[in-house]
């Protein structure tokens, strides 16, 4: 009985001397794997305006809207593009997978919080902006089988070691 108490205490105290697990989030961000399902990226020069994405979407959060800019889209003469309402999208990315022309893509952007609900409506132009969120931290095991603890370290540093 008392040995078990001491064992539990020893186990807890041991961890004071291990590496810290916590990541300092707003300054350090995790490296997201390729194909992480964040917000969408729309290639406006590929989309034909067929509307298959809007059909497959389980939440009906895509609407096809006409775009009013001066550019010409030969593959899409009516200039109709998908517009996303992120207050409803569940990031299942069935739209990306079912798109016949590959006009949609995954991005690692997930910080979509807004003060205003209306701002969650993403127009086609906004969707075609390149992703901004670039993380570089990844979990690293220290010691044999991680017995010295786990930390999050920048990937570039790991490679150069």
């Amino acid at each position: 009985m008392s040995t078990a108490v001491l064992g539990a205490m020893y186990e807890g105290i041991k961890h004071i001397f291990k590496h810290t697990f916590t990541m300092k989030y707003p300054y350090q961000k995790v490296l997201l794997p390729k194909g992480f399902r964040g917000r969408h990226l729309l290639y406006m020069d590929k989309c034909t305006g067929c509307g298959i994405c809007a059909w497959i979407c389980p939440e009906r959060c895509i609407s096809m809207v006409p775009v009013t800019d001066n550019k010409e889209y030969p593959q899409n003469p009516e200039k109709r593009f998908p517009q996303y309402w992120y207050a409803r999208c569940c990031f299942c990315h069935f739209c990306t997978e079912y798109c016949p022309t590959g006009a949609l893509d995954y991005t690692p952007d997930y910080e979509l919080a807004e003060y205003d609900r209306e701002l969650l409506l993403w127009s086609p132009e906004r969707l075609s902006r390149p992703p901004t969120n670039i993380g570089e931290y990844q979990s690293v095991f220290h010691g044999k089988d991680g017995n010295q603890g786990v930390t999050f370290e920048p990937v570039i540093k790991q490679k150069s070691k």
């Binding site: 009985m1 078990a4 108490v5 064992g7 539990a8 186990e11 807890g12 089988d145 017995n147």
Partner: peptide, 14 residues
Amino acid sequence: KRLVEYDRIFFSNP
């Protein structure tokens, strides 16, 4: 390895 530690701190903890 962690499961052994869990055992010591939680499951065998009096």
